[in-house]
Amino acid sequence: MSRVLDIEGLTVGFETGGRRFDAVREVDLALDGGEVLALVGESGSGKSVTALAVMGLLPEVAEITAGTIRFEDRDLARLGEAEMAAVRGARIGLIFQEPMTSLNPTMRVGPQVAEVLRLHKRAGAAAARRAVEELFALVRIPDPAARYDDFPHQMSGGMRQRVVIALALACRPALLIADEPTTALDVTTQAQILELFRDLQREIGQATILITHDLAVVAETAHRVAVMYAGRIVEESASEALFAGALHPYTRGLLRSIPVVRTGPAAGHPRRLVEIPGTVPPPWDLPQGCAFAPRCPRASARCRAERPPLMPFDGGRRAACWHPHVEREDAA
């Protein structure tokens, strides 16, 4: 399958409040056509900064200090703002947590999407309107022609997020980046939007990076998962393998700290949640060695002294750990 995005050695530095630190460190990530890659982590993991770097939307206090972001024969890390603006929206579609980040509250939703088509695709007025109604139908907005003239505030949160998805897909981008796209939605609306993502994935197969803190959302949407901690990828693997048995103790801890809804006979007896002790260290004060070592049940002297690189494992998996949870055949 064709490579859509290739990130190598991405490092993003911040200078703020008199401190200089790297929020993203030496991140390598690749994405193929038709693939959904989830970027998972807690606050401060660097997942959103990684996405912002790809979108060319880093805040002023941040800059890419090393690495390349190869996308359609260009290095996005070296692109100027004007060139990046032409890529964004046309070749890379964006979906944010809060739909109103992307929508203009004073403009009707149909014309907002049409404007993107007229700008990037030089579509005429009638053709643009037709295309927008088709897009609204694609994202399952009931009665697209009637909704064309609605203002965002006349729509529910779920319908607004559908408009944002239509906007992101309008120019048939090669890459879709969705940053916590269902976090602000209620659970029944979230289920509808996740279902829409799965359907669109089957129908148009766009390559997608999904940024989320919610591992359940990952399981329901992504083919592959990269887990970030303190600015680095600590584990990457196919979804099925990760949920069946994660290699990194941090990933294991995250999975066991989720209060999963239990139905059936276990409904009255949820297990005790496993805590990960302590907190994420601030990026300007990372421990020597593995950043997770102070919270890790498996940490050894080596972990505190020497940072583990991201190492390859069977089945195309990667993990940065000196003591990974590997099922050894001789131990069975």
């Binding site: 659970v187 289920a191 996740l194 799965r198 959302v217 399981a219 329901e220 949920f243 989720i258 809804v261």
Partner: peptide, 15 residues
């Protein structure tokens, strides 16, 4: 029932 059905679960088989 619908609320319980809508909750995402960390199991890729549901995808």
């Amino acid at each position: 029932r619908a609320l319980l059905e809508a909750v995402p679960v960390p199991d890729p088989a549901r995808r």
